[in-house]
Write a protein that binds this DNA or RNA. Sequence first.
DNA 1: CTGAAAGCGCTTACAG
DNA 2: CTGAAAGCGCTTACAG
Lengths: 339, 339
Amino acid sequence: MTGRRSGRANSTEVARLAGVSIAAVSRAFTPGSSITPQLAEKVFAAARELNYVPNTLARSIITRETKIVAVMIPRDANPRYADLLAEITARVEGVGKQVLLFSPESSDDFDRTLQHMLQFQVDAIVIAAATISSRMAELCLGRNVPVVVIVRHVPGLPVHSVRGDAHQGGRLAADIMLSGGAKRLAIITGPPDLTTMLQRSQAIMDRTSATLGADAVTMVEGGMSYEGGRSATLALVRDWKPDSIICLTDVMALGAMDAVRHDLKLRVPEDVAIMGFDDIPASAYASYDLTTIRTPVTEIVDHLMDLIKPAALLSDPVSIEIPAEVVIRSSTRIPSAAV
Amino acid sequence: MTGRRSGRANSTEVARLAGVSIAAVSRAFTPGSSITPQLAEKVFAAARELNYVPNTLARSIITRETKIVAVMIPRDANPRYADLLAEITARVEGVGKQVLLFSPESSDDFDRTLQHMLQFQVDAIVIAAATISSRMAELCLGRNVPVVVIVRHVPGLPVHSVRGDAHQGGRLAADIMLSGGAKRLAIITGPPDLTTMLQRSQAIMDRTSATLGADAVTMVEGGMSYEGGRSATLALVRDWKPDSIICLTDVMALGAMDAVRHDLKLRVPEDVAIMGFDDIPASAYASYDLTTIRTPVTEIVDHLMDLIKPAALLSDPVSIEIPAEVVIRSSTRIPSAAV
DNA sequence: CTGAAAGCGCTTACAG
DNA sequence: CTGAAAGCGCTTACAG
């Protein structure tokens, strides 16, 4: 292979070999710039010869655009974020940018992580399932870096946010259980400090108490895991005897179903109806066939893509709520005509 | 907030405000460089005032180190790669670098993607579940960028590779079925162009034919999906009546289990024993409790971290195979003492 | 269209 | 330890 060198050729070397100016090689590699095809071809020939690859970093310093979008997903985020990340990556690449990943270990590191992102001069910052300080948010905005929080909402934070409509999703879930004839409804929640979880459970409580009275509904913590949902269900059925359980995530709901069927030898939905939130792949498998509430990932990312544009810096923070959809499967009772 | 500016302060402005040289601000932000604490503090005070954040890109041009590791995962990669990516990201951050993600749509784009990575001057390139041309591999190496392929192996490609030991994993799977008393064993495979899949099925075939004869084993395509595993199983049980099925991925195995129990009303493992590969989370759920073969992700990433170091450029391509482990659960028959 | 020159934000020998 | 100066690889007005 001719031109194979141990180092990396730069535009000066390419220019020299091609017998043109360094500005010419810059123009040859900048689509849409004014250069004759003949000149460009001379540059490309020399570039091939030298295995030249333009240095995007040097370009970025001048253009003030890195084509990099930083995405922060905390290390302990639930599996649902894998899909979200895949979708974001695909869409971001669709507009000619790349995703730079940051996965801080704990919330103490979130602000530090933001700082780190800024050092890379990223064009935009996406925060999934995490909160940041107003101070850092303002620092980013002051540097003209759009910041958008997805999936979670932090009231008062001066950044854009996109997420599922948790209240509406909660109401939807309650309505399905109530129309199926629920008389005693339990909720298995996640950590109480998450706004989304709080809003979902609040909406379910409100809806259910309004119809059946406050005594007909209860709430326990399920720790966001399969095992958490399973053991919470065991305790619940023993101590409170619900006829319906809404889990705030599908992973917990799968644990709940297994508790009811495998551990307690009861039937779903006849003895206990169960539903979840998220619509993860396993929920559709025949062994579970879980009724669930989902927020279309595509729509979240649609809005996200708008909000990471520079133009988004001009508007006041917007807070977008995507309506949830219900996926009816067989883990809940068929609605009676009565309701 | 004082010092809030619409733009971004640079080291010159910080130097001026602090009343020091621009070299001093560079040193203040470079751990380990020779600067008195007093001088550094003056710099930091000015930096705070101006919301200064060092520009890593400019630094990278000079140091020739970007602290960025490119990771390529094709868009259609199976869910297993989510875990792998999470682990890689965590470990890469552990050594002070960040992951820049690339998810090309089709294999036509793989080489183009490599080129793109090089433009970002990444410190190393990780290719998961994909192949690249020798030409591009050599181009990267010529630029002193380590390339390592994980999970998949491409014979003859001059790059490092780390993956599970597919032959040994296949033998392990066959042994479990045989020791459980298998007499007619079916394999549900993925796309035949994947070396890993080929090696697994070959090992299973060899082992089984050696014990039971070539007629006792068959092989069908399952398309790598839950639905694919399910429909392949339906056809298999109808046409060939296996007493044991090994699926080359867990996702297909879950589909196979549901086909046997839900669609065919047969028992697992009494009527048909089933096992898979990967040990995805759902395999551990009580409804499945799938026996499976797993390759420890941690060990793969351990080796990966070594191979993306600059020192790895000095050695000839190494090809590391991590031994697979078996996770015995209840979807397979208990081994009889006889075997 | 093309090139010489200035400049992006930083680091690093080189003197002191 | 500290600073003036050269330089990393590139882009972009500015003339021609």
